[in-house]
Design a protein around this nucleic acid. Structure first.
Lengths: 213, 213
DNA sequence: AAATTGCATATTGTATACAATATGCAATTT
DNA sequence: AAATTGCATATTGTATACAATATGCAATTT
């Protein structure tokens, strides 16, 4: 059966792609007519898409003054990453030790990260690795919250690497986590996972300070 | 200055009121024309409101088949309350020991709960107490997630108490938490807070089992 | 010259119109 | 009789029209 994506969903994706490729700049107004004609859709589904992005903390809405792309800020980094660390650790706790199959894919994905030079690819693979680790978590709401935080943090990571060609590869930490899991030490893995989530925060903060100086 | 609420916000509130007063039943379809004429608004802002409720896990949307009120289920209770416990504890951790002013209001609100017979009022006061305890948390995203989980759990609490005239009053636990805080024992308070969040879960689960038998 | 007002234009907010799909039931086929 | 098809109606999805507010700038006032 063919599953047709709603226009709203397609618009969300199209906007997201404009955002991460910096076609729309942080803090820039997002005019409805403008975007509607750019994407060749009417304002109705466009507004629905924008409103979803507002709920996701990607877009800001000011009553009667319209939408704008959320700016990138230190405060937000210090909200997003620590929360992600907490939620992902909890999700790992609920997931338990991964199955052999998942474990193999974790190892393989980590190897792929090592081989990859494209920084965009690294960001994607890293997210994949993180989600894989908690893929057995039964709490759908928790996973949804985690995925949303990933979306938010990706904006920073994409922007950061567009400026800095080097990207943090946290392969060694991933290996540590895998080792803990192989020894069935869930608690230790959970703690290392939380740490891993915070590894890039300092450099992100420094970078933000430098561009906003 | 007069702040005028958008229609969308008013509609969300109106729908919420229909939901908690059981005018709309769990799992019942929410037809757009139906609700639009009931609330005397057009379908456009109504759809926007419904879509926000979808994101909040209050309403379910099936493509081309419309919206329906999310059903009440054991699985959801077992997602909502443990997640809330985790997030609220984290928020308390980030909030630190409350100020004298907040502490006084915590004590006072707890006293009010004791005096109250209206179960609706108790649910509201209990939420107020919980939010007060984490009101100093600087992480806005965390607070937003907590408030959303409160909204979801309230559906259960309102429905439960409509059937069972008695409502859990967790005053003693609140007192324990206050005592820990007065002794500046944040860690202990955090743990007790997590526990407090899970106190009603068993009875909710039993109730759900009985009505879905 | 700086501040204020008034108005044309741009923009968001809401209602309505039209298009596409889903539903339910009678008519038809097996 | 059970299953299938075809079609009228209901319903959602999207576009457009209209209403209300915000913005920017020229004209006017201080």
């Amino acid at each position: 059966m063919i599953y047709q994506e709603s226009l709203k969903t397609q618009i969300i994706n199209a906007l997201w792609s404009l955002i991460i490729t910096n076609k729309i700049k942080p803090n820039e107004p997002m005019r409805e007519n403008n975007l509607a004609s750019l994407l060749n859709v009417s304002r109705t589904p466009l507004r629905e898409a924008l409103q979803q992005l507002v709920w996701e903390d990607i877009v800001i809405s000011e009553p009667r003054r319209g939408f704008r792309l959320a700016k990138l800020s230190e405060e937000d980094v210090l909200e997003i990453y620590p929360l992600r660390a907490k939620l992902e650790s909890f999700a790992l706790e609920l997931s338990g030790i991964p199955s052999k199959q998942v474990m193999d894919e974790l190892i393989q994905t980590n190897a792929e990260i090592l081989k990859t030079n494209s920084s965009k690819k690294i960001v994607e693979l890293d997210e994949h690795w993180h989600l894989l680790l908690v893929s057995n978590c039964p709490n759908k709401r928790l996973l949804k919250a985690i995925k949303n935080l990933h979306k938010q943090s990706k904006r920073y990571e994409y922007a950061y690497m567009a400026m800095n060609k080097t990207v943090e590869k946290s392969i060694a930490q991933h290996e540590t986590i895998i080792n803990h899991l192989q020894k069935k030490q869930l608690q230790k893995a959970t703690e290392a996972f939380a740490e891993n989530n915070l590894v890039g925060v300092d450099s992100l903060i420094n970078w933000l300070k430098s561009i906003n100086k």
